[in-house]
Simulated scan of single mutants.
Amino acid sequence: MDLNTVVEIRDARRPEPWRHGDAWLGGGTYLFSEPQPHLRRLVDLSRTGWTPVHTRADGSLEIAATCTIAQLSRYARTLRAEAAPLFEQCCRAFLASFKIWHMATVGGNLCNALPAGPMISLTAALEGECLLRAQDGVRRRTRVTGFVTGAGRKDLAEGEMLRSVTLPARALACRTAFRQASLYRLGRSGVLVIGTLDPVDHSMAVTVTASTVRPVRLWFPLPPTAAALTAALGSAVAGHEWFDDIHGLPAWRRHMTFRLAEEIRRELEEAR
């Protein structure tokens, strides 16, 4: 879609004061998908030259905000980590064309903060930490679970930019379990639940996205009983936090979340 109110595209490598009506341009798959009448200038991140994704000396994985889904998928195929299969599962949860895969970015998916965003699911489940940079160069870090605060809402100030997301080595070493549900065979995720099992201390985490307005991550020092998991989910998600749109009613999303979470609990407990 043409954005006929935009009068200028600026290279992000040339620092200029942030103006009202500015927006960061990554892949643009969301930005150009619907009218954006409030925009006047786009600040293009495509020429920043950031390394899309790489493993750091400490074993953690740093994913640049400009990393595309295709780049992440290719890298994950070479990743020697227990959690490697989860990357492709979440990439495939897009159910998008190859055009979207080669343009949509990890940062864009997080910053749109849509409940069904599978990069939110992936990074929240693997204890991702966002690196944010303000216009004055000040940097701060926040967990993905705190960055996405609601449907379409995120902890991002005016002009602030998501630079990267880092996944710790310990999370990458975890065994994972993945469940997804949709009302349609090729529909948007209505429920997406991910479980992780730490091979060292046998702690378990269950992360819920798509069915809730924000990512919810529950951590247990040892695999919980079915009753304990049900109680934890029930107290962690308030009634108004079950998402409601054409892709699923709150009652259905809640029911499927509890069902899939229990499947994951059993799968990971058996894997101990």
Rank of each mutant, 00 (worst) to 15 (best):
T5V: 08
V7L: 12
P15V: 03
H20E: 15
G21L: 07
D22P: 14
T29Y: 08
L31T: 09
F32M: 12
P35M: 09
P35Q: 09
P37F: 01
L39P: 13
V43E: 09
D44R: 13
S46Q: 15
G49Y: 12
W50F: 02
W50K: 06
A57T: 14
E62D: 12
T66L: 09
T68L: 03
S73V: 10
T78L: 12
P85Y: 02
F87M: 03
Q89W: 08
C91D: 07
C91V: 14
R92Q: 14
A96R: 11
A96Y: 06
A96E: 14
W101T: 02
G107M: 03
L110H: 04
G117Y: 03
T123K: 09
E127M: 00
L132E: 05
V148L: 07
G152W: 05
R153H: 15
L156I: 01
E158V: 11
E160P: 06
V165E: 04
T166F: 02
T166R: 15
L167K: 02
L167R: 00
R185H: 14
L186K: 14
G195M: 05
T196H: 08
P199N: 04
V200P: 03
T207E: 08
A210N: 09
T212P: 01
V216Y: 00
R217C: 11
P224Q: 09
A231R: 10
S235P: 09
G239H: 14
E241C: 04
D245V: 07
G248P: 10
G248M: 08
P250A: 02
R253G: 03
R253P: 02
R259Q: 15
L260Q: 12
I264M: 09
R266Q: 15
R272S: 09
